[in-house]
Nucleic acid binder design. Structure first.
Lengths: 157, 157
DNA sequence: TTTAATTCCCAGTATTTTTGTCGGATTTCG
DNA sequence: CGAAATCCGACAAAAATACTGGGAATTAAA
């Protein structure tokens, strides 16, 4: 039940993108630097996110990444599904060759699984990337007005 | 975000216990048989569940397991926490030596993590084992009244 | 009192998943 | 052109998961 680093890195990268990619494309190097993530690993994550349309990229010098859609159209669920695979805590196959589950309608635990699954899905799908970006912007202001002038700050561990 | 087989097996075993341990203690062998789970593996899971007080056991011949408390006092969350470890999807350490997270109040993503964590927790803690047992009983009746006389039936895959 | 049925305990192992690393090809701006 | 990037695929290390096996301790029943 723990998010993988994939998912955490991905979320942080997308928040970072939201904060920095309004005017210019942002390179993996700069994200990885700010967020303290391995470049090559992040590269792979970005590839997935791109495939899913959550980010877009331009190649070559001065290239980099931007969000693929406005932040309020990307839910945390969207991101997690790309990076974690299905969010279903349990998949009920309906039929098992060994007879341990005798057909869909007879599968008892299915009810549990569904309840858990639905709850998680509802939660992450209602939370939008834009909210996180906004939250992040606020925090940064607080830091600056508190006299701490250090440039950028990570999003989380 | 997927439940481990540990958690699935454990849930099924506890539902099974609820169904069969009213009069007599139930052996691992019989649970494993009905649920189609490896005996030694299940043994380890039961050890954890026992340590947590969710089941109790009697050793020796005719021994076996019983629920440690009434089913309506055991939440699915309790079970998952024992078998999956923490249900926190993400832990925010507050401080990171590398500086990627500058103190608790500045940790931006914490908000996300908390929201996801809370949602999952609320969901699994509100679902009680007794509900699943009851559900399971119903299904079994359906099966029997449908003319299918095969003895016990698994709980899910 | 022996015997069989059990839980209990601990150590090891195989498999899968996660978390990376590396090298090079390709594209594009200046 | 040359540097800065994305892209691509294969490999490797580490961690977690899932499982196996052997034997000791306990207990009910024959």
């Amino acid at each position: 039940m723990k998010l993988s680093t994939r998912a955490r890195y991905g979320l942080r990268a997308l928040i970072d993108l939201g904060l920095h990619s309004e005017n210019e494309a942002v390179s993996i190097q700069s994200i990885a630097g700010r967020q303290n993530i391995s470049e090559s690993y992040l590269e792979q994550l970005m590839a997935k996110l791109k495939k899913a349309g959550l980010v877009e990229s331009t190649r070559g010098a001065q290239g980099g990444y931007r969000l693929g859609k406005p932040g309020d159209q990307i839910s945390v669920g969207d991101i997690l599904r790309v990076l974690e695979g299905s969010l279903e805590a349990v998949e009920c196959p309906g039929i098992a060759s060994d007879g341990s589950c005798s057909g869909e309608s007879l599968c008892v635990a299915k009810h549990v699984w569904k309840r858990i699954n639905d709850s998680i899905t509802a939660s992450v799908d209602s939370l939008m990337l834009s909210e996180l970006i906004e939250e992040s912007r606020k925090k940064q202001k607080e830091i600056i007005s508190a006299g701490n002038q250090t440039a950028d700050i990570g999003v989380s561990k």
